[in-house]
Design a protein around this nucleic acid. Structure first.
Length: 584
RNA sequence: GCCGAGAUAGCUCAGCUGGCAGAGCACGUCCUUGGUAAGGACGAGGUCACGGGUUCGAUUCCCGUUCUCGGCUCCA
């Protein structure tokens, strides 16, 4: 499973493409003016802007970025036309050799066409397919954003280059809107909100990539887990628990030791035996499946577990809750007959749809088919792929096909969820697995009295509690819907005279199952409201003399503000209904 | 792991070119009883991430380690 937000290439309009690609050239020109020793490599337009990679001995500093940007403004002002020239590949190679641009020469060596094109603006010339703006003066709005290391041709084995990221738009308004969106994303950063709202923490004393759920985050997770169990039980899942460590031998049988060792914590020696912490739950579940003779009458068997796994991830890739070393998957393995496969996939798709709607995510579906290297029989692959495809069709789900993108052990359906800011995240996954049943000789007895290999479906709806909560934090900007909020209601007496009634109100709410807290500190009401707002508490009940007298509450909603006075019972009913409906 | 940047009070951050460590918020005590987003006074808080080095003297300069951040690569 991968970490998002990931590349979600909608394809740029030709206009935007030209604008950004030209911006990249102008940046390269500016860099060459300021750092003549820099070697140019490639500089494409990307969804969020553009970049250009340079080979230069000394690193760019943030001040350099400003200087480069200023130089770019000059180039825009100088308004050079972008001039296209065509020449033979051989001539181009000679040209770039003369210019001492070895990376361009390397690219030319791999180009198959005989004719190539270059673009010139002023003194700067680059090998490029184009197209470009008419002239540098047409670049209206751009900004350089960051400096980063990037491998030449994206390979770890190659030299590390220096990449400068920037963005450009046809108009200043569009640029401003984009910069504002970046700010908005920063405000929603789950690491920032997680700290501010007391949801979770990470401690260097304990180690990187290990999450500690603080009380507030613990509440949210607890609510989510209960909901998850309830929905799964309703849908015929059984809950199992499997140990966190197991003999190394088990992981050799499953194949993980061969294929996945780099991501596993190394073995522990115990009484002349070796144990490893689990990086996945599947081998445990398959042991449980295999613990007795299974008849086709017993199937399907759906083993679900909020299973905590540990994977070694390189420090450089760790990221808040999104990429961690210890996490809890909302895992389940479905053991069924080939005939049942399509129906089971449909049920999972139904569950996925249900879950996505609950949290107000939209989503996109992709079907990944057989890769070149694969386990199992061809015939099985075809049947399984067909089952996945038919399940999607039966449920009228639009999807695209990613040919050859399946895992070696089986085809899969991957679902990307789109959050409130339109950002995509790797979400639910449904994978058919031919490999493990074979390795473990997991079979069932069919009506013919013979053993047949069982079909195993591996699926996760949320992925992991950590990542899903991270996505939820960003999706809701920390303002969880009522049913998920760690503190749902804050009771705020105006003066100390109303404390007894406020206590009564709070206790009533708690008794009725709401997570209510009383803030009776001797602070002004405005101050306590502000604090509750900052904590993103959905409802504040302001209680003054009038309310205490009339057994009412003055309701304030965090987004809509003052809702006016209500009977306590009326508020209770309203809140309970909202919780029940899980309105997002 | 790689390139770059960073680590100063619980949090957010200031501290120019070496000379006994600062602000706001939060926290504690007291005053204030205030009707829908910040009332006031006083106070406590630091091995300047850790370990070495240079120096009369290091939060500041150098090296290493750990962790964090932006990317790259990786990611069943």
């Amino acid at each position: 499973m991968s970490y998002g937000p990931e590349e979600h290439y909608k394809g740029l309009s030709p206009e935007l493409e030209k604008c950004r690609h030209s911006a990249a050239h102008i940046m390269a020109q500016a860099v060459k003016r300021l750092f003549p020793e820099a070697k140019i490599t490639i500089g494409p337009a990307i969804e969020t802007g553009f970049y250009y990679d340079f080979d230069l001995n000394k690193p760019f500093s943030p001040e350099d970025l400003t200087r480069i940007e200023d130089e770019m403004r000059k180039i825009v002002k100088e308004n050079y036309p972008f001039l296209r020239e065509e020449l033979s590949r051989g001539d181009a190679t000679l040209l770039f050799e003369k210019m001492k641009e070895p990376f361009k020469v390397e690219i030319l060596n791999e180009i198959k066409e005989d004719r190539v094109s270059t673009y010139r603006q002023g003194e700067f010339l680059d090998l490029c397919r184009g197209p470009h703006l008419e002239s540098t003066g047409k670049l209206k709005a751009f900004k350089l954003l960051s400096i980063a290391g990037a491998y030449w041709r994206g390979s770890e084995k190659n030299k590390m280059l220096q990449r400068i990221y920037g963005t450009a738009f046809p108009s200043q308004q569009e640029l401003d809107a984009y910069l504002k969106q970046i700010e908005e994303s920063k405000l929603r950063d789950h690491r920032k909100l997680g700290k501010e709202l007391g949801l979770f923490s990470i401690h260097s004393e304990a180690g990187p990539g290990l999450i500690f759920w603080q009380p507030k985050g613990g509440r949210v997770r607890w609510v989510l887990e209960n909901f998850w169990r309830q929905e799964h039980f309703r849908r015929g899942y059984e809950f199992v628990y499997s140990p966190h460590v197991a003999r190394l031998e088990l992981w050799k049988t499953s194949g993980h030791w061969d294929y996945y060792r780099d991501s596993m914590y190394p073995p522990m020696e115990l009484e002349e035996d070796q144990y490893v912490t689990k990086p996945m739950n599947c081998p445990g579940h398959i042991l449980m499946f295999r613990s007795g003779v299974r008849s086709y009458r017993d199937l399907p068997l759906r083993f679900a577990e909020l299973g905590t796994v540990y994977r070694f991830e390189r420090t450089g890739v760790l990221h808040g809750l999104m990429r961690v070393r210890g996490f809890t998957q909302d895992d389940a393995h479905i053991f069924c007959t080939p005939q049942q496969l399509q129906g089971e996939i449909q049920s999972v798709l139904e569950l996925v749809d249900f879950m996505m709607k609950i949290f107000a995510f939209t989503y996109q579906v992709a079907l990944s088919t057989r890769p070149e290297k694969f386990a199992g029989q061809l015939e099985m692959w075809d049947k399984a792929t067909q089952a996945l495809e038919e399940a999607l069709k039966a449920r009228n789900i639009p999807y695209k096909v990613d040919p050859g993108e399946g895992v070696f052990y089986g085809p899969k359906i991957d679902i990307k969820l789109i959050d409130a800011l339109g950002r995509p995240w790797q979400g639910p996954t449904i994978q058919v697995d031919f490999n493990l049943p074979e390795r473990f000789e997991a079979t069932y007895v069919a009506s013919d009295g013979k053993h047949h290999p069982v079909v195993m479906v591996h699926r996760a709806v949320w992925g992991s509690m950590e990542r899903f909560l991270g996505i939820l934090i960003e999706h809701f900007g920390g303002a969880f819907p009522l049913w998920l909020s760690p503190v749902q209601v804050k009771v705020l007496p105006i003066t100390s005279d109303e404390i007894p009634y406020a206590q009564e109100v709070k206790q009533r709410l708690v008794k009725e199952g709401l997570r209510a807290e009383l803030d009776d500190r001797s602070e002004k009401i405005g101050f306590r409201i502000r604090e509750a707002q900052v904590e993103k508490v959905p409802y504040m009940l302001v209680i003054g003399g009038r309310e205490a007298q009339g057994h009412t509450v003055a309701v304030r909603e965090r987004k809509k503000g003052d809702l006016g006075v209500m009977d306590l019972d009326a508020f209770l009913k309203k809140a309970q209904e909202e919780v029940e409906q899980k309105s997002a």
